[in-house]
Computed example of a mutant assay.
Amino acid sequence: MSPHVKPSKVPNERDFAGGMISSISCSFVGSTGEMQLDEEIKEMAAGISGVSDLCLLQEMMISSVRTARGAVTEGDFKTMNRALKEMRYANEVFYPFRSTRKVGVFGSARTQPHEPEYQAAVDFSRKMRDANFMTITGAGPGIMAAGNEGAGREDSFGLNISLPFEATANSYIAGDEKLIDFNYFFTRKLSFVKESDAVAAFPGGFGTMDEIFETLTLMQTGKVRIYPLVLVDAPGGTYWKFWLQFVQEHLHRLNLISDSDFSLFKVTDNVDEAVEEITNFYRNFHSYRYVGDHLVIRLLKPLTKAAINKLQKDFKDVIKSGKIKLSEALPEEANEPRLAELPRLVFRHGHRDFGRLREMINAINAAEVGS
């Protein structure tokens, strides 16, 4: 393990969808269309050691058979196979570091080391390392190299994309066991979303815009858990200020986004402020997941009764019905035993307006805690 970044005292929850991915039941495994073959697959799955979910393995095997026999071109079949292999390998690389918080760093590959944006990215990643966050970059030059440089090789990941004009990883992550090569942008972006506990974006081009708007879209629609997104300029820089002006004057003015959507990100030209935005998010809040229509928010320390009452009053629009309750782990959370001791806030949530949910998490972090 890295000498700089230490695992969290309380293990991290790695369900990036916050419990929104439905569990698999053996009643819904499906069929190849041949009863005998289904039984053979079931027996084969049962005979494989170290499998945590036999029903899910059976379904994946059946899906592969049906894909191979179905209306699929050779190119489609190869794409599905390679995508699954890339996802499997990425999981194997990240798994040993699953209890360590990580920040994804985006920005232009064209930024030069002498430019202030590059130096700001180095400073940011170094300070995030000191705050016990590893750094994930796209492994290329520019801001990506700055992120790996600031964090250092031992505290860095590199998610390299195979491109005809950027064939090699930057020198700060090249050759490291935590460097992963991807053929597809979608598998690479899935790893960023799935493994990051926060995202910092520095000035960049189309790729950076794609990454931050996708992050915002996924959080706004509740498809991934909420986490901090900071848009960082060099001191005195105006890149993100003009981006924010566009969002305000066009998206918001035309009622294409809500007031609370501005709570899903923060624009700053101060590295210390960016670091504080991320670390404060995890001051007391740990993670959340859904159990049916109930939202279960895990905390490091329980809130006082008065603090919970204030949340009930201030965020009544977030609560679908009923009251916010301080709770122990629910029976449905038994598949996450390492988090069983954390106190919970449980309430019915309407699965909408996630900007307001982010504001509620901010209020939780600022609230008075009990013993």
Rank of each mutant, 00 (worst) to 15 (best):
Ser52Cys: 12
His286Pro: 09
Arg253Phe: 12
Glu115Val: 02
Asn160Ile: 01
Arg283Leu: 07
Tyr288Val: 00
Ile278Glu: 04
Gly237Asp: 01
Val291Thr: 11
Ser162Tyr: 02
Gly18His: 02
Thr215Asp: 10
Ser31Asp: 03
Lys323Leu: 13
His250Gln: 14
Ala131Met: 02
Leu84Asp: 01
Leu345Pro: 03
Gln245Val: 06
Ala45Thr: 04
Glu249Cys: 09
Ala200Phe: 10
Ser8Asn: 14
Val291Met: 04
Thr279Tyr: 02
Phe106Pro: 03
Val199Lys: 00
Ser31Gln: 08
Ala329Gln: 14
Glu249Pro: 03
Glu336Gln: 13
Cys26Glu: 15
Asn270Lys: 12
Cys55Leu: 02
Lys178Glu: 00
Phe242Cys: 10
Ala90Gly: 12
Asp38Lys: 07
Leu254Ile: 05
Gly292Arg: 01
Thr79Cys: 12
Ser321Cys: 11
Gln220Leu: 02
Val232Ser: 08
Asn148Gly: 07
Glu277Ser: 15
Asp269Pro: 08
Lys310Arg: 14
Arg298Trp: 07
Pro11Thr: 05
Glu39Ile: 10
Gly152Ile: 04
Phe186Met: 01
Ser191Trp: 07
Arg253Cys: 06
Ile308Leu: 08
Arg344Gln: 05
Leu163Cys: 05
Phe265Lys: 04
Tyr95Phe: 15
Gly107Phe: 07
Ser31Glu: 08
Gly222Leu: 02
Thr215Cys: 12
Lys310Phe: 00
Thr135Arg: 02
His250Arg: 13
Gly47Val: 05
Leu339His: 12
Arg344Leu: 00
Arg129Ile: 00
Thr187Trp: 05
Glu249Leu: 11
Arg14Tyr: 10
Met87Ala: 15
Lys223Pro: 11
Phe347Arg: 00
Arg66Phe: 01
Arg153Gln: 14
Met87Cys: 14
Gly47Phe: 09
Asp261Ala: 09
Gly175Pro: 04
Leu37Trp: 05
Ser8Val: 01
Thr215Met: 15
Gln36Glu: 15
Ala167Tyr: 06
Lys42Asn: 11
Ile297Ala: 07
Lys102Phe: 09
Leu251Thr: 01
Thr67His: 11
Phe185Cys: 07
Gly107Asn: 05
Gly175Ile: 01
Ile297Phe: 04
Tyr184Val: 01
Ser27Phe: 14
Gly104Met: 12
Gln245Tyr: 11
Glu166Thr: 07
Arg88Leu: 14
Gly175Arg: 00
Ser371Met: 12
Phe97Asp: 11
Tyr89Leu: 11
Ile361Leu: 11
Ser260Ala: 10
